[in-house]
Computed example of a mutant assay.
Amino acid sequence: MSDATRPRARIAALLASLIPGLLAGCLPAAAEPLRAVLELYTSQGCAVCPPAEHLFGDLARRPGLLALTFPVTYWDYLGWKDTLGHSLFTDRQRAYATAHGEVRIYTPALVINGGAALAGANRAGIETIMQETRAGGLRVPVRTEEQGDRIVVEVGADPNPPGRADVWLVPLLRSRAVAVERGENRGRVATYVNVVRGLYRLGAWTGQAARFEAPRSAIQVGEADSYAILVQGALGGQPGRIWGAAKGPGL
């Protein structure tokens, strides 16, 4: 090798050693598998809800968690009608209470993986349950993607299925701030993440690998700009344990 070509060879060798590391640094990190679905039942008319909503925003940013906000309607009589509330979400919370033998519902309430509720601002209790879920995760694999004007959902098999479950497409509004003008929170700005705008049942899952499709128009309700997928047990028509979930774009 001549003296003129030696510098070029050294530069080429250096680049060859650096490129794999540079490429690896450009690749997106693999998403942590979902291990918990958190449902916050809240209301713009609930004076004690803002701390729970703030905590929920922090939880929503944690990897491995799917956070869903369900605004309810039963505090509307206090002087401010929740602008995001829906009776469907109130019914869902009541159904959870019935399934778990509870006699009342309240806000802010947090339901984890379809289990019993706890106070939405109970940071210590929430952290304890989060630690319990850290070792496991949601047992049923779920994958979703958009293909043209269709949303395609693939639910994996389970050799020991936990029972019959329904597969749900959940339209979401990823972020919304609401200025409350009347009622107990008058003058406050309520800030929400992943606000549920509807529940769209795709079909039943019985333990076998299954594929579901829905038109993308199914999520175009209430200003929704993303969606989630839930595989949730059905207990006599009541919502049961959540066995699998997936996040849509931007979550």
Rank of each mutant, 00 (worst) to 15 (best):
V111W: 07
L55G: 10
A214L: 02
G183K: 06
G237K: 03
G148K: 09
P7Q: 07
E102I: 04
A60C: 06
Y41S: 00
L110P: 03
D91I: 03
P161S: 02
Y41A: 03
M1A: 07
A99Y: 03
V178M: 14
Q44W: 13
G57A: 03
T133L: 12
E102F: 09
W75I: 12
V167P: 00
L118D: 02
Y96P: 02
G187S: 07
H86P: 07
L235R: 09
R10A: 15
A109C: 06
Y200F: 13
M130F: 06
V37N: 00
N113I: 14
S43A: 14
P249A: 03
L78E: 12
R143T: 10
L59M: 05
R123L: 08
A16C: 09
I19F: 10
R188K: 15
L55Y: 14
C26D: 05
G203T: 11
K247C: 05
V195C: 10
P162M: 01
R216A: 11
G156H: 01
R164K: 13
P141T: 00
Q44E: 15
R164M: 13
A124R: 10
E53H: 08
E146D: 04
D158F: 00
A179F: 14
F89P: 03
E184I: 11
L84Y: 10
S87E: 13
V189H: 05
A135Q: 12
R174N: 07
K247D: 06
A165I: 05
T128F: 10
Y200G: 00
W75A: 07
R94C: 04
D91H: 08
A121D: 15
L23I: 15
R94H: 12
F212P: 10
L65M: 10
Y227F: 15
L55F: 12
H86S: 15
I229K: 02
A224R: 09
L84H: 09
L199V: 10
G136V: 09
G148R: 11
A119N: 15
I112G: 00
D91N: 11
V140D: 00
G163C: 07
L59A: 08
F89D: 01
G156F: 00
S87W: 06
A4E: 12
V180F: 09
R143G: 11
V155T: 07
G79Y: 09
G233S: 06
N194Y: 06
R6P: 03
Y106R: 02
A119V: 15
S217R: 12
I112M: 13
V142Y: 00
Q232E: 12
A210V: 13
V153Q: 03
T144R: 06
A224M: 09
T191I: 14
D3F: 09
G101W: 05
V189P: 12
P108D: 08
S2E: 11
E154F: 03
G163H: 05
G114A: 09
I112R: 04
V140L: 03
A4M: 06
A234G: 01
D76K: 10
Y200L: 08
G183H: 10
R241D: 01
G183N: 12
G137L: 02
P28H: 06
T83E: 14
M130V: 09
P50W: 13
